[in-house]
Simulated scan of single mutants.
Amino acid sequence: MPPAADVLARWPAICRHPDASAWLRLQADLGLAPRTIEAYGRALDEYLVTCTDEGIEPSRATRRDVARYVHELATRPHRLGPNVVAVDSGVGLANATLRLRLVAVRLFHDYLVEEGVRADNPVGRGRYTAGKGFGGTRHRGMIPRFTKLPWIPTDDQWRVILDASRGEGARNRFMFALAYDAGLRREEICSLRTDDIDPAHRTVRVRAETTKGRRQRVVPYSAACGSLFQEYLAHRRTLSTARGPLFLSESHRNVGRPITLWTWSKVIRAIAVRADVPRFSTHTLRHLCLTDLARSGWELHAIATFAGHRNTDTTLQYIHLSGRDLAQRLEAGMASIHAWRTQLTVDVIS
């Protein structure tokens, strides 16, 4: 966790506001994940800039003031302009990003209420209260929640992606196969250490501190992926013989240093460009793995345990995406699809 001073230094509007500085420092001291602190800092800094431009003091901001901030986020031109891969409306931030921005503002105002700076929270919460149809009257939040199914490539796109990854080095090919095989998030695979892999039982331990839900899990990987692991170990010894981070940088400037999230993102982005499948990302490998598990007939709770989901509602999207019920009626032999895809991945990129 970076020092609180370093966290605050990145956000000038927060530094100028004592209550905002105290709140963000509190979040850092409570041990929230660095990326969560980053997201909260960016959201709160933008909100305070809007308040300053509008001549509004956060301690006196109304729901209408917060709504203007939301409107500005929803209508601003995207920073990538025409180069953006996919934005629902063509302008503004994605629905999930908007809700994340508003969460930070809501939590900050909760802090002001707790400290006695103001009497209420202008953001409020979407909730049900007793009184009318279906057991209550719904009080909607400021931003509606859009629940979308994750994107996964078609089989033809997958083959093109595998062809594009064929020329990658031993590290990238093993990371690619393991990220799919074990359904790992970007942070999880980049944070693996040498003692997290158990080749005797072909399992990988995902430590709690590297996961989104702070839940440790142990997941298996295939024999084919194990062969790529042995190949990578031989290559890793040319970079470093020390135990520690499993995946090491190969660049001249940082040779032997732990790989960064951005390095892995660049690798996957380069593959996506070569394959001409721009929507392919580091998280696609996880989405595809979990969808394939649903296609092959895994039960909901088994997939949730494998994925490390706290709430099975998150896992349900893969069940829906897979069309499992229809597949069970229309096709036989789907139980082998996960093993088939794993073997195909290793065969093509080896």
Rank of each mutant, 00 (worst) to 15 (best):
P278D: 15
K212T: 05
N254H: 14
R310I: 08
R202K: 00
P18T: 00
Y40F: 11
S296G: 10
G55C: 05
P144N: 04
A327F: 02
W298R: 12
E231Y: 12
A33C: 13
V7W: 00
R99C: 00
C225A: 12
F280G: 08
I14V: 11
Q343A: 14
T238C: 00
V277C: 10
G308I: 01
K212N: 06
R207L: 04
R145Y: 10
A74T: 12
P58R: 00
W340T: 09
T137C: 01
D195W: 05
R63T: 04
V84R: 15
S281E: 06
D276M: 11
G323K: 07
R215C: 05
D195P: 01
W340K: 11
V85H: 15
L293Y: 04
A302K: 08
V87G: 11
V105A: 07
L288F: 03
D156P: 00
L316T: 12
V117E: 03
E57T: 14
L321C: 03
P122H: 01
R217K: 00
S296T: 04
A332K: 04
R215S: 10
A242G: 05
T211I: 08
F306L: 14
N95C: 03
R185E: 09
D19G: 06
L228V: 06
H338L: 14
W340V: 06
N83P: 10
L261A: 12
H301I: 14
D313E: 15
L285N: 05
L30E: 15
E209N: 04
R106A: 09
R237D: 08
F146K: 13
H139Q: 14
E168V: 01
P18R: 02
L26C: 11
T314C: 08
R329H: 04
G333A: 02
I271S: 10
Q343E: 15
G41R: 03
M1C: 14
V85N: 14
E72H: 13
P199G: 02
F174G: 05
R214G: 05
T282C: 15
A302G: 06
G55H: 07
D156W: 04
R243P: 07
D163K: 12
R329F: 09
K132N: 06
R269F: 06
S59E: 08
A43V: 01
Y221P: 02
Y318N: 01
C51E: 09
A234E: 10
R68F: 08
Y128H: 12
R269S: 13
Q343Y: 12
R185W: 10
R125L: 15
R60V: 11
A275P: 05
S350Y: 02
A270R: 15
V85A: 14
V218R: 11
V66C: 07
E168R: 06
L80R: 15
R274F: 05
T342R: 03
I56S: 02
L285V: 07
C289W: 03
R76F: 01
G92N: 07
L239P: 11
E187N: 10
R185Y: 12
D195C: 07
G323I: 09
Q157H: 02
C15L: 08
G297Y: 09
I56W: 13
H17M: 08
E57M: 11
A223R: 12
R64N: 10
R329A: 05
E187K: 03
S296W: 00
L32S: 04
